[in-house]
Amino acid sequence: MPHVEVLPNSASAAAPGWHYVVDTGYDPSKVAFNPKDRKRVAARPGGARGENELSARQQTAIARRIAELDRDNDMKQVVTVPGKQAPAKTQNARRIIQYQRQIKHWLDEEEALLQQAPPPRPTAAGARTGQTTRRQSTMPQTPAEGTPGPAQHIPTHIGFHGDAENDVDPLLSIQSSIPPPLKPAELEALLSAPPLSYAESHASPRAPGGPRQRQFCDNCGYWGKIKCLKCGARVCGLECKDAHEATRCLKWA
């Protein structure tokens, strides 16, 4: 190891805390936290957004738009009930009639109540396992009879069982198409399961391996073939791009 000593001269100022370090190459942990070189962001591992990933701004805009489309009553337009109202008959009825809450308040309240005290579930109910697994596996399960394999022999007590036995050709046999009979306990567990909450009852999103999300032109509704450089929305051509920039571009939104 050669000895390095900095000799004081007129060109170098002896700044406190200044010293040589060994250069070990590129260290990602030492890179500035919020780099400004946006053009090179794609070159860094995990740095760039994927082709179909949305920016936070786009996600907010979509969420807001869906909420707007799904809204029942416009709070800006107040429609009063015409005529004189019959008075409420009990204290309780008056309280309920005077509520000015919207559905989202009630749904939020229900969620909060469920969080606070999870309701007692029936033990080992079939519904319970169904409930917990449904968010994890979005792939439809292949039914047992759907998979080709050795014909399962299902003991059934159905009238035409005798006929099916005489059948020589296994392809013509209806044995494999008859699902196994219902177990009464399983059925009872399914029917007596508690209702899902409103939020839980929504259909789950498509499995990620499925067809890609279709993109449409923001202006005319044709396929969105071009991405707006400023905000990432899709347009179909130059004409729609101009219209998009004049009205809908999210760059300055």
């Binding site: 029942d72 009553n73 009639i97 509520y99």
Partner: peptide, 18 residues
């Protein structure tokens, strides 16, 4: 419009009662 039923559930009883 003022609709007492939102997302399928009766929410506003003032209007629904009327």
């Amino acid at each position: 419009f003022r609709r007492p039923v939102e997302k399928g559930f009766i929410v506003n009883w003032e209007a629904e009662k009327a």
